[in-house]
């Protein structure tokens, strides 16, 4: 693949201060997203996947204790940008975001059209009229009739509101849209409708997506690459085809076996145990405690090993020549 990826993240770390000590929510995460590519970040709740989204947008809470790593947009390092420059050049210009439960955060007393047009007025300084016209176009793209511009959020169903916040992320024509659990509160048919809209947008506009979710099945509707997170770290990063067909990390394998499938006779398995506390994560591999293939090397923090061209796995089982 020629050229720089759209976004390259290297060794991203984000630690929070809390009443009981330092929470290591992100502890060395590296991946990249190419143009017009859909990356899915999978993980259980509390694995740091929402923190990752906020870190990429640099929307950090006040209690950050440590934030480091590298965030390259088109090969240009943005970590050292001051906030004002990041806001002007990156956030909502190159990268925009649909936050978790954003559809419930629409202002109830402002018409939907106005709210969706806001990024254009703020970031581009467009006139109300011009912004409205552009918003109507984007509404068509996400599958809402332009009549809804004049409605208030309570007049829209959940699916419609989700489409509206998606439109809000798209109006400024960003290169990358990050979506945190965009369909998890919605019904199956609504979910399928939204995933269809995403596929269409990706094809028509060439937008890249990072979809953050715990829902493996729905994520497969768009995923081209998959990054699986566990306890603040990336444990596997692979092409969706390889990940879904032949997961490599022991956690990936268990996760795939735990997904219910419509026409499968066996009961899906459940993964025993709980993820470690990020206040004081274990020294070695963070999954070791729940891992069926644990061996003596797992007491040390595993390196990230490359398998083939396009897959990395953070597990000692995949060390060259390793055999438990």
């Amino acid at each position: 693949m020629a050229g720089e990826p759209l976004l390259r993240v290297e060794d991203l770390r984000l630690h929070y201060r809390s009443g009981n000590g330092v929470v290591r929510a992100l502890d060395g995460v590296s991946f990249d997203v190419r143009r017009n590519e859909a990356l899915v970040v999978l993980g259980e709740s509390g694995c740091g996947k929402s923190t990752l989204a906020k870190a990429l947008m640099r929307l950090l809470p006040r209690n950050v204790q440590h934030f480091s790593g590298s965030l390259l947009v088109d090969g240009v390092e943005t970590m050292d940008y001051p906030e004002e420059r990041f806001r002007r050049e990156v956030r909502w210009v190159r990268i925009s975001m649909v936050m978790q439960a954003a559809m419930n955060a629409l202002n109830p007393v402002i018409r939907v059209g106005e709210q969706v047009a806001e990024p254009l007025r703020v970031h581009r300084g467009w006139s109300a009229r011009r912004a409205r016209e552009r918003t109507a176009e984007v509404f068509g793209l996400v599958g809402i009739s332009a009549d809804f511009l004049q409605r208030y959020p309570f007049e829209l169903s959940g699916g419609m509101r989700q489409r509206a916040v998606l439109a809000m992320a798209l109006v400024t024509e960003p290169d990358l849209v990050i979506m945190d659990e965009p369909t998890s509160a919605l019904d199956v048919l609504t979910q399928a409708g939204i995933m269809n809209a995403l596929k269409r947008i990706k094809q028509e506009l060439g937008t890249s997506f990072i979809l953050i979710t715990h829902d493996v099945s729905t994520s497969s509707e768009i995923a081209e690459r998959v990054a699986l997170m566990y306890a603040g770290q990336l444990v596997e990063f692979a092409d969706a085809r390889d990940f879904f067909r032949e997961p490599a990390h022991p956690y990936s394998k268990l996760l795939m076996a735990s997904v219910p499938r419509l026409h499968q006779k066996e009961t899906p398995v459940h993964i025993p145990g709980q993820p470690p506390n990020l206040l004081n994560p274990p020294e070695g591999c963070r999954f070791a405690e729940r891992c069926p293939s644990r061996f003596d090397r797992c007491d040390r923090d595993p390196e990230t090993f490359r398998i083939g061209e396009r897959r990395t796995v953070r597990c000692w089982l995949h060390a060259p020549g390793a055999r438990p």
Partner: peptide
């Protein structure tokens, strides 16, 4: 029938086509 057709199994081929939704 529509409900069942909208449910995805984790299959990478899902990304290749649109789903039929009423």
């Amino acid at each position: 029938q529509a409900l069942l057709a909208a449910i995805s199994d984790p299959d990478p081929d899902n990304a290749l086509h649109l789903r039929e939704v009423p």
